[in-house]
Amino acid sequence: MTKLVEVENLNVRFTGERTVHAINGVSFSLGEGEVLGLLGESGSGKSVTLRALMRLLPKKRTVINGSIRVAGRDVLALDDDELSMFRGATVSMIFQEPALALDPVYTIGQQISEAVIRHEGKSQREATARALEMLEVVRIPSAKRRLDAYPHEMSGGMRQRAMIALALACKPKILLADEPTTALDATVQIQILLLLRELQREFGMSVIFVTHDIGVAIEICDRVAVMYAGQIVETGTLRQIVRSPLHPYPRGLLASTTHGAKRGQRLETIPGTPPSLDKAPTGCSFAPRCALAEARCTEALPPAIDVGDGRMARCVLAERIQPASV
């Protein structure tokens, strides 16, 4: 499988009043037609990773190290013109709040056709036709009428569909989704997830899907990378992560879910809170909250152990698992 995205030892540091080591040595890859989930809690660096891929982080206050290759190009080396062609045509992004991501003063149709004209140099008529086609693709009812609707005239679910239409208008190879269903109601969330799943198959694109919700990840991802304190602590297929997590953090996370928990019974919890990120980690970031921590966990950064099958865990416990036996 060709790798569409290859991130190698990515480090992102926010400078300013306080230094925040947001991403610390993240490496992952994304194959063609694959849906990778970045799963983590707030502050785990999942959104920052996604934004780094598109170079959306504020230039002045961010220091990025490492390498990001998307579709064979070095993203960190792109100049401004290349970057604006790269965004939208190769990679495009959908956000949690479509109300903020869509321009309130243009109609949905104008926004989509503008993107098509800019990236593909189509005529206004062709672009409008594409806009209509895209609204139909995302199953917006009475699409023709909706072309002339402004974002504020649509409900939350419709706006999210419109944003997906805008993101997919130029047939990008990769779609980056930053918690696109978090702000939606449950009955709408499932519709959007199913739509994304369907479109991903139809367009054959690759998706990186950022979420904090394991249930959402289960609905859409093929592979999952679990993030904690700016690092990927475990990568594996969805089934591996959900059925038999290796790292204690995803284990704790799965155990603490309220799904299927008996009333009156105490929930399993992970004690403590995530570490502050004002220093780069020198040991395992999870060790202070980990029941299985050993002395060596805090002494040195645990290596990323490849346990075979493309599965990785950044934990000393994974050493016991023989590669290839899984």
Binding site: R18, S42, G43, V48, T273, S276
Partner: peptide
């Protein structure tokens, strides 16, 4: 953009 950096900061006690 600020939103994410803030949430990163927030996690820091």
């Amino acid at each position: 953009m600020t939103v994410i950096t803030e949430s990163v900061l927030q996690a820091a006690p």
